[in-house]
Design a protein around this nucleic acid. Structure first.
Lengths: 152, 152
DNA sequence: ATGGTTTAGTTTATATATGAAATATCTGAC
DNA sequence: GTCAGATATTTCATATATAAACTAAACCAT
């Protein structure tokens, strides 16, 4: 059936579009903030959700634990985040934005918004809404399949 | 204006959806073919376009020249691709699939198609088509902006 | 022809990412 | 109480990715 071919085409469009945006945002973060998209995403998760355990960061960013450990080390060294111990469970560490981290993130977020807005300016507002809605549906499908086994 | 916020939301959906698929495909390539998504993409470009210079591979995959050099080394060592010199221009090297590479890629492509098809099975055919069309529009907008400067 | 520029690709240093194994801590059945 | 598993995080080895500096070859204006 041609159905599967269409789905492959869809997934390729998705990857390409996503990668083009990622590259541009990464270039922005490097040029203007001496940072990277990975660090921006990390800070973004903390800005959105407040204090998080490292495991939660890993889940939100869809990256491995080891990766989170590395990023945490760098962001801490830069003074953008800080760690606090859990009162009851000594395995758990929570990270959060420092004052400096909040301030830096605000500037980053503003530049990021301007960047993606410029990149997708040719899309009408209606198309953006449709696209967001359809991507939500795709995400839902994905999440459901991923809990079970998708690889046959 | 809330327009920029909507665009940020859209770009986040895009990245998340794309990352979920990439992770699953990467896991598939590791589990079944002792490979990775990066190598699959490389082989995929050669399968689609035939013999390519390393620079062309870099453009198709949206990755740097250095990255292509590294991947080429591994794929050559595995006997999946081979290099030939250009007759007229000694700077240029073309890579192409070997017989083994073609055969391995066929199996990979089949598994890949089954994987993404399963992941996105909950979407109707109509939704997939709409999504592909909208992503095409997004890609066009991106390409146009990227030739100019998107970072204000 | 020759020297300056562009083009193709490699190398180097480093950041990002993974899976697997290890460590440390907690939890629950007994 | 204790000990077998579960959970949170780190460490290790390695793959993937970048930017910047570099090499080699081609092009091109003089």
């Amino acid at each position: 059936m041609a159905d599967a071919r269409d789905t492959v085409r869809l997934s390729l469009r998705l990857l390409t579009t996503s990668r083009l945006i990622e590259r541009e945002v990464d270039a922005l973060m490097r040029a203007r903030f001496d940072s990277t998209i990975a660090r921006f995403d990390f800070l973004s998760a903390l800005d959105r959700h407040g204090a998080l355990t490292l495991g939660e960061v890993s889940q939100y960013l869809l990256v491995s634990n080891g990766n989170v450990t590395q990023l945490r080390t760098r962001l801490s060294a830069d003074g953008l985040i800080e760690t606090e111990a859990d009162e009851n469970d000594r395995r758990i560490q929570r990270v959060r934005l420092t004052k400096k981290g909040e301030s830096v993130f605000k500037h980053m977020a503003k530049a990021h918004a301007a960047c993606v807005d410029a990149l997708l300016r040719d899309l009408t507002q209606a198309d953006k809404q449709k696209l967001t809605r359809l991507l939500d549906a795709a995400k839902t499908s994905l999440r459901r399949k991923l809990t079970k086994g998708a690889t046959p």
